[in-house]
């Protein structure tokens, strides 16, 4: 359910209707950005943000910090396992 693709807001095309072009690997499509404009922000402020696109709507901002936290955690997991394996004297097979 609910195919959602990360893309980057490239430019605003219609401020009133809150439409903007989103870029996914060079493919561009006009999407509605109403859901990702935060309080006190204008449509222009969202340009450059990474968002999740679903059926022509930017549905959520991607939090780059949170993404990094998840990745760091996963990375640390691999390292911890390798260390534990080294302590046991076996080679970690990553």
């Amino acid at each position: 359910m609910c195919l959602g693709i990360p893309g980057q807001i490239a430019e605003v095309t219609n401020t009133e209707a809150k439409l903007a072009l989103v870029d996914v690997l060079g493919v561009r499509r006009e999407v509605n950005i109403a859901c990702v404009i935060r309080d006190g922000e204008t449509a222009e402020d969202v340009v450059g943000a990474w968002v999740l696109v679903h059926v022509g709507f930017a549905m959520s901002r991607i939090d780059e910090k949170e993404a990094q936290i998840t990745l760091d955690l996963l990375h640390a997991l691999g390292e911890a396992q390798a260390e534990a394996a080294a302590l046991r004297g076996v080679e970690a097979t990553t």
Binding site: L3, I5, V24, L25, G26, V27, R29, V53
Partner: peptide, 12 residues
């Protein structure tokens, strides 16, 4: 090509 991959991701 990147753009082909992008289109495929968008359209499934």
């Amino acid at each position: 090509a990147d753009a082909v991959r992008g289109a495929c991701e968008i359209l499934g």
